[in-house]
Design a protein around this nucleic acid. Structure first.
Length: 496
RNA sequence: UCCCCAGUAGCUCAGUCGGUAGAGCAGGUGGCUGUUAACCACCUUGUCCGUGGUUCGAGUCCGCGCUGGGGAGCCA
């Protein structure tokens, strides 16, 4: 729907496209009476021809409607921006009396033009010449102009994207997904789509959802089922991570990343966990743990800057409605130098802490949420990498350090959220990886290919995983992961 | 999965000491020449989450269950 023409484009192709658009426009909108095409509301205020008052057509859903005898004010939103546009309908417009009764949520197309608004709430009005009702909204439309609780909005997930908050959240989500790709593309990382269905259920990342075509009512309990007769001929499930396959690609394309869904069948009931979520997982060959922290720091800062610059309207909304000061908080992260701290040093800080913790602090034990938040909120007061954890509390694939007590793991902790990134340098030495798999009880029969990658040109490599939804929570101030996922899956919830 | 809290009209919530159900908003009707969560008048709306118990009587007290929220664990 762009109205500007790129100069270098293939002209004949462009003409074909324009003709196709024209045909489709005539098909879809036979009564538009010479108006070029539908204009997105966000484009209305940024293009000079519309500001001069050129006639055009906007289409969207009614957010609110105020009618008096001779005039109707209709707030129209098409999802392209937060405020939408106020459509002013005067009594000469065809169907005026019927339009007065139009319900909130109705879908309408309006032909008209921008005029400067004499009112005080907005700069521009859209003066209607013609209003077509595409779809009326029933009087039971559940979204009201006043504030709803997020809990209630979750129960109407089919309609909540039409609310201000979720409009902002999902525009931010879309922008940040693009930012993830642009960050890695600028650095010449290869995007790899790792499989969603996997046969290795021992990646260390929690319970798998089973994938099968067999009918459990006929074959009995899954534990007794014979998977050799099933579709894949073996036990399969939904992936918990694309990392292992990502490593294989990094050993061919050097720098790669995956960005896709991951699934965990854990019975987690917290505001930070979902059964289906999206992960960003870069992997770099010929890179060590330090390189990994550099990439992670650049990545997080890039994403913060991107949100502030490219979702400024949404960030201003979050700052006002969701979390006061969120813009300043994100700006500080974008400018901060992240701290790098050894696990052992973190333990020392915790032992010396003038506060008491509910969980014990001792070298060899994992850091609890309360410990992580103390470090990043009280000790460093900025994002901090915790490096080189004891091997016993980390996954089998992490590289054993020379002290034989720690592995080259890293967690990035940020104020308010805690862990936002987890990663490591990978064990590239065949014999050490082999014994680590034995020690962790990881089946080599299933992961033979992973182990074998260490036989043919194995190289030092490192990578990390960033939970995309946790990033969105961090950027927006939204406090429940269910409110940054379009249709969230959590225990007992897959209804939409 | 464990601990704590909550569930009353379509939504947000009030409901006193256990005495028989309320407000605002939404919706409906009418009014209003420029509104801004419009305003004014009138009107409609209840399995008080379910279930069992205590009691002359339960929205209110007790048990169990369901759902939601917060915290913890698991983790991203």
């Amino acid at each position: 729907m762009t109205r500007s023409r790129s100069s270098g484009a293939d002209l004949s192709l462009e003409l074909l496209c324009l003709r196709a658009i024209r045909y489709s426009r005539e098909w879809n909108y036979p009564e538009t009476d010479g108006v070029a095409m539908r204009t997105r509301i966000s484009a209305l205020f940024s293009e000079e021809s519309f500001i001069r008052g050129e006639r055009c057509e906007v289409a969207g859903w009614v957010r609110s409607l105020r009618a008096s005898r001779n005039i109707i004010f209709m707030l129209l939103n098409d999802g392209s921006d937060l405020p939408g546009v106020q459509v002013v309908i005067e009594d000469h417009v065809s169907g005026f009396e019927e339009l007065k009764k139009l319900g909130t949520g109705s879908a309408v197309k309006v032909t008209g033009h921008l005029v400067e608004s004499p009112g005080s709430g907005q700069k521009w009005d859209f003066a209607a010449e013609k209003v077509e009702v595409a779809g009326r909204s029933d009087e039971s439309y559940p979204l009201q102009k006043k504030r709803h609780s997020f809990e209630y909005l979750r129960s109407i997930a089919h309609l909540r994207p039409r609310s201000n908050t979720f409009g902002a959240v999902f525009r931010l989500r879309s922008n940040m997904a693009h930012a993830v790709h642009s960050f890695f593309r600028e650095r010449n990382f290869l995007l790899v789509h790792t499989p969603v269905i996997t046969s290795n259920d021992c990646e260390g990342g929690g319970e798998l959802f089973r994938v099968a075509t067999m009918n459990p009512e006929k074959t009995g309990a899954v534990g007794q089922a014979d998977f050799s007769d099933d579709f894949f001929g073996c036990r399969t499930g939904l992936t918990v991570s694309g990392q292992l396959e990502g490593e294989l690609f990094s050993l061919a394309f050097t720098d790669i990343y995956t960005f896709g869904p991951a699934f965990r069948a854990e019975n987690s009931n917290t505001p930070r966990h979902a059964a289906e979520f999206w992960m960003v997982e870069p992997e770099m060959a010929f890179a060590d743990l330090y390189d990994n922290t550099v990439l992670a720091e650049d990545f997080v800062k890039y994403l913060c800057r991107h949100a502030l610059e490219n979702s400024a309207e949404e960030m201003a909304f979050f700052d006002q409605q969701i979390e006061r000061g969120v813009i300043e908080r994100i700006r500080k992260v974008a400018e901060a130098d992240f701290v790098r701290m050894e696990y052992s040093e973190a333990i020392e800080h915790l032992r010396k802490a003038p506060v008491s913790f509910n969980f014990p602090v001792e070298w060899g034990l994992d850091l609890q949420t309360e410990h992580e938040r103390y470090i990043t909120e009280q000790v460093t007061r900025r994002p901090v990498f915790i490096l080189n954890y004891p091997c016993d509390i980390k996954a089998f694939y992490m590289r054993r350090n020379d002290d034989c007590k720690t592995v080259a793991a890293m967690d990035l902790l940020v104020p308010k959220i805690g862990e936002i990134i987890g990663g490591s340098q990978r064990e590239e030495r065949h014999d050490i990886l082999s014994s680590a798999m034995d020690a962790h009880g990881v089946g080599k029969e299933q992961l033979w290919w992973y182990l074998e990658s260490r036989k043919f040109g194995s190289a030092p490599h490192a990578g990390f995983g960033l939970g995309f939804e946790r990033l969105l929570m961090y950027l927006s101030g939204m406090e429940n992961i269910r409110d940054v996922i379009p249709f969230p899956r959590t225990p007992g919830n897959a209804g939409f």
